[in-house]
């Protein structure tokens, strides 16, 4: 069921006023927690009513008492759910940049003085994670948020929800945390080799496979060739690493927006992104030219990040 637009607008205004955006830790206060019965809670109430009807019919005083005890339990479930969220501290860390179409993972840290069980975090329908927190400790969970568009992805309002302990009630709250992550354009799959398409200028070095000088390690990314994985290193580390090579005689390429014979801006960006990644992987030197921006020939992780950032924020600057 889709909510009408006016309702959604009002809701957003109300949410912004009630849950101000926090750049630091936000603490869930009592007036920021909402509780409503779940379907199971309604079924429970119906059961209690049936007990009550039986009590009236059979004139069983203790069955009256039991029905009322059930109502009391429902009420206690409400309080427990409320307290499972009350006073919870929420803060967010820096997320790693991602490519469009992937999930950005925001590290959400939950800090609590007491044990909290089965807290569900969500930012939109497709991103839900659950967490337990031990008393006087914190828990970091990675909240996935789909990166649909390149550019800055702002962390949406995070909903914290608890149906613990009884599932009779659903208690929830919102945390508006100031966090954003850069989303790079989606690299074009099966992009033509950049060696052929782009003009190799500025010194006209002979291109060679840059595998002679070992230059260092960088973190493995999906798509990297398996034969370049540093297996010895992998046995020691938690993550896989890729061996990188420095080849001073390697070719240099300039990737120019204007040279591409593609229709849309997005597909150009997509192609350029694919080339930047490929050239970085190959260890080639490369430069990037976009309308209004030119990045010099260089190589290495910092250059790669600079290029991808320029691609991600392209339209915003133009």
């Amino acid at each position: 069921m889709k909510r009408p637009a006016w309702f959604e607008r009002r809701r957003q205004t109300w949410l912004t006023r009630r849950h101000p955006t926090s750049t630091d830790t936000t603490r869930l206060k009592h007036n920021q927690i909402y509780v409503l019965p779940t379907g199971f809670g309604f079924a429970f109430a119906v059961t209690a009513l049936l007990v009550l009807i039986g009590a009236i019919n059979y004139q069983l005083s203790l069955a009256y008492a039991f029905a009322f005890l059930m109502f009391g339990i429902g009420h206690a479930g409400l309080l427990q759910g409320f307290r499972n969220l009350l006073g919870l501290h929420v803060t967010v860390g820096q997320a790693e940049p991602v490519f469009t179409g992937e999930n950005a993972h925001f590290p959400i840290r939950l800090i609590s003085d007491k044990a909290r069980i089965s807290i569900y975090l969500s930012a939109g329908r497709d991103s839900v994670v659950a967490a337990n927190i031990q008393p006087r400790s914190s828990n970091e969970t990675w909240l996935p948020v789909p990166a649909i568009q390149r550019g800055w992805l702002v962390l949406p309002t995070v909903q914290l929800e608890s149906r613990y302990p009884t599932q009779l009630c659903r208690a929830w709250s919102y945390a508006r945390l100031a966090a954003r992550v850069l989303v790079y354009p989606q690299p074009e799959s099966n992009a033509p080799p950049y060696q052929l398409a782009s003009n190799s200028d500025e010194g006209g070095s002979v291109w060679r496979r840059g595998e002679d000088d070992f230059a260092g390690l960088r973190r493995y990314q999906p798509g990297d060739p398996i034969r370049r994985i540093a297996w010895k290193q992998a046995a020691r580390d938690e993550h896989l690493s890729i061996k990188q090579f420095d080849s001073p005689q390697s070719a240099a390429y300039r990737f120019d927006w204007h040279d591409l014979a593609l229709q849309s801006a997005e597909s150009r960006l997509s192609r350029l992104t694919a080339w930047v990644l490929a050239a970085d992987l190959a260890g080639d030197r490369y430069g990037l030219t976009l309308p209004g921006t030119t990045l010099p020939l260089d190589h290495g992780p910092a250059h790669r990040t600079a290029c991808l950032t320029a691609l991600a924020l392209f339209e915003a600057q133009a």
Partner: peptide, 11 residues
């Protein structure tokens, strides 16, 4: 604890 919390309501 929940039963204890339920008690006043029930009474």
């Amino acid at each position: 604890w929940m039963l204890l919390e339920a008690l006043p309501v029930a009474l």
